[in-house]
Design a protein around this nucleic acid. Structure first.
Length: 403
DNA sequence: TCTGGGGTCCTAGGACCC
DNA sequence: TCTGGGGTCCTAGGACCC
């Protein structure tokens, strides 16, 4: 049976949500109406554009470029900081509204949802519901969304990306040829900056040209990814809306250091902080990790990572840190300044599914108790209340260097 | 480039086993 | 040994998404 799919995409999400919040707090200007962006923190060397207003777009400012470049394009540009908690709250409000239409909702990212409306139409057409959601979000929540209307996820997603903002677009099978095929291949979902030049070399410039190229030729050149891109170009996508919220498959944190760091003991201290954050989240999900991974980025933007499978799954800060520290030492080369350090855990399993050997249990429980005491305090008093003595030192030192 | 951070999935090659 | 072939597991790194 034909599926009924909507893709809801918040227009300029971070910026719109900030605008709504500022208006609510009595601010008189709507930052959506002026050249403005949400930007990272330049003093922490993460000064890039995360979201932009339509007026900023007119100046040629694009997401991902540096604030420095953005200001050259528009000297009077207003820059507002990131506020992740606000985004999460705003995203939840949207989700609550969408739940009134179907419980088959996949939260694809903080500002995008797929809705499976099959069997939830209640006498209305899919398009009618799309317009109703569009209107209600604007009236009740104060920001606008684009909605893609189609019979599979890929086409719904492509449709919501057409003209913006505040629009509803359909992309049914019979519309593929006129609405999607004339677009450049770079517009196709899952085709990124590495694949586009290769397609150009094959004289493939539009989605239609890709769709009409022999499938086997694309598979031979791009493998599994090739099959997917050929199917997408032809509007084929049988994937389901993943509405059962799944646990993460990996959890990680990384940070660009305020200054390049040459000293491994400093890196160790940052690594400990990252490990504490990651394992805290791991325990909150009631998961255990089987693999520990450490990533470094050098001053010259060269990335490397090392990972290792553990002898047994764990969520213990201490156990994971011991392994992460080993990995750091294996990778670190004295004299090569480090710009970014990250750590992540992978191959996660449900804690309750693991059968602990009796031999390990006593030791394990002791470590668990220590972690739990700290977690409970973090829960109660906020994350920053618990810091290790060593951590405070490095933050102070980095700040001093930075000035 | 004055170039973020959190994810998922895939591939290639080496180690190891039968 | 001038060393087969298939399968699985592991690690490093890449591509892509928002």
């Amino acid at each position: 049976m034909e599926r009924q799919i909507l893709h809801v995409d918040v227009n300029n999400a971070f910026l719109s949500w900030t605008a709504v919040d500022m208006l609510k707090k009595g601010n008189t200007i709507d930052i959506r109406e002026i050249p403005s962006v949400i930007g990272g923190d330049e003093s922490r060397r993460s000064g890039i554009v995360l979201a932009k207003s339509p007026k900023a777009k007119i100046f040629g400012i694009s997401t991902g470029e540096t604030l420095y470049q953005a200001r050259i394009k528009c000297p009077k540009l207003k820059v507002y900081p990131m506020n992740y908690n606000l985004y999460k709250q705003s995203s939840n409000k949207l989700y609550q509204l969408l739940l009134q239409y179907t419980d088959k909702i996949e939260r694809f990212s903080i500002d995008e949802c797929f809705l499976d409306m099959t069997n939830y139409l209640q006498g209305k057409s899919l398009l009618e519901i799309a317009y109703e959601i569009n209107k209600r979000v604007k009236q009740e929540l104060g920001f606008t969304v684009n909605i893609g209307v189609a019979h599979n996820k890929l086409l719904a997603k492509m449709a919501s990306d057409f003209t913006k903002p505040d629009r509803v677009h359909t992309l049914f099978e019979e519309e593929i040829e006129t609405k999607m095929w004339p677009l450049p291949v770079s517009e196709l979902f899952m085709l990124g900056r590495k694949t586009i030049p290769k397609l150009y070399n094959m004289r493939i410039k539009t989605i239609g040209q890709l769709a009409k190229t022999d499938k086997q030729i694309i598979i031979k050149k791009f493998g599994k990814h090739g099959l997917m891109m050929w199917e997408y170009a032809n509007g084929i996508d049988n994937s389901e809306v993943q509405y059962k919220h799944e646990k993460p498959k990996g959890i990680g944190n990384s940070t660009t250091l305020p200054v390049d760091v040459n000293d491994i003991s400093k890196l160790e201290e940052v690594l400990l902080t990252l490990t504490e954050q990651v394992t805290y989240r791991l325990r909150k999900y009631n998961l255990l990790a089987n693999v520990v991974n450490v990533q470094l980025r050098t001053k010259d933007f060269e990335d490397k990572s090392h990972q290792r499978k553990l002898l047994r799954a764990t969520s213990s800060t201490k156990e994971i840190y011991v392994e992460a520290k080993k990995l750091l030492h294996e990778m670190f080369i004295d004299g090569i300044p480090i710009r970014l350090i990250g750590m992540r855990v992978d191959n996660l399993v449900e804690k309750d599914e693991i059968q602990l050997s009796l031999f390990n249990q006593a030791d394990n429980e002791k470590q668990e108790k220590i972690d739990k005491v700290i977690d409970d305090l973090k829960q109660k008093y906020g994350y920053t209340s618990i810091t290790r003595a060593g951590k405070l030192n490095i933050e102070k030192e980095i700040k001093l260097k930075d000035v």
